[in-house]
């Protein structure tokens, strides 16, 4: 299937390499000159305040949004990525809005996650279903229920499970903790650790910076559409600039306004 895999199999290889990525909405530039890379088996997080362009970044990498720049995924360059091709090559996205099939059952939602595998004739997808149920027993309890009736945490589990059914090599998650109570957030972050140990690379976009930095290997801080800080996650966790960016204490113009 994958011609590129044979070419270089020495770990850790670069799985995703984004260079010079720009996205504009009309005349407004939402992302400018983004450089970001992720190695096989890594968990990389992009953190930053609301409205910094984090979701836009994931959408652009996935091909949901038009962008310019160079995206290298699994050894292949894409200038304007085509979403179906990328999914077929092992890229998965759990979007911020989850985008579940609300009027369909939980099980159908999960099965559809394996649609591309099914189309290729990969018969092992039913086995993956069992694995997902093992990972999220709650989903098995509710397998016949309509997705629209689930609670916030269950919806998130379903969205992650659905993406996992595609056996992605790189899973991108957009604000998985959004609107979830701390206990559930902790549970979900624990699962990310599990996934990584199973060899799935993860690109995690989070507003919940502490939790993200705790679990990640490497981190980027996105502010106003630009990468302002990046480094090893444990280093950034204690970087006061990160806290300032979030709480508006980094004020460049506080003085001017209070005059």
């Amino acid at each position: 299937m994958n011609q590129s895999q044979t070419a270089h199999h020495v770990a850790p290889e670069t799985l995703l390499d984004v260079n010079n990525l720009h996205v504009s909405y009309g005349k407004v530039e939402a992302l400018s000159d983004i450089q970001l890379s992720l190695k096989e088996g890594q968990l990389v997080t992009v953190i930053g305040p609301n409205g910094a362009g984090k979701s836009t970044l994931l959408s652009a990498i996935m091909g949901l949004l038009p962008s310019t720049g160079d995206i290298l995924f699994d050894g292949e360059h894409y200038t304007s990525p085509e979403i179906e091709t990328l999914v077929g090559r092992g890229l998965g996205l759990v979007p911020e809005k989850r985008e579940l099939f609300n009027t369909m059952s939980v099980q159908d939602n999960l099965l559809l996650g394996a649609f591309q595998r099914y189309r290729r004739g990969d018969k092992s997808y039913l086995q993956s279903l069992d694995e997902i149920y093992e990972l999220f027993p709650r989903l098995q309890e509710r397998s016949k229920q309509q997705a629209g009736t689930l609670s916030g945490g269950e919806r998130q589990m379903l969205a992650i499970g659905r993406a996992m059914m595609g056996k992605p090599r790189l899973l991108m998650l957009d604000e998985p903790s959004l609107g979830l109570a701390p206990l559930i957030t902790r549970e979900i972050f624990r699962i990310f650790n599990d996934l990584r140990s199973k060899g799935v690379s993860i690109l995690l976009v989070e507003q919940n910076a502490r939790a993200a930095l705790n679990v990640a290997d490497y981190a980027y801080v996105l502010e106003g559409g630009k990468i302002t800080i990046h480094g090893v996650a444990s280093d950034l966790a204690n970087d006061s600039r990160v806290i300032d960016a979030y709480l508006g204490l980094a004020s460049k113009h506080q003085d001017i306004l209070s005059n």
């Binding site: 903790s177 701390p182 957030t185 902790r186 972050f189 989070e206 507003q207 919940n208 910076a209 502490r210 939790a211 993200a212 705790n214 806290i243 979030y246 709480l247 508006g248 204490l249």
Partner: peptide, 16 residues
């Protein structure tokens, strides 16, 4: 608000 611990936790997350 800027010094309220609950707010700090809400924004940065309190998961250890």
């Amino acid at each position: 608000i800027q010094t309220n611990p609950a707010v700090l936790e809400a924004y940065l997350g309190g998961v250890e």
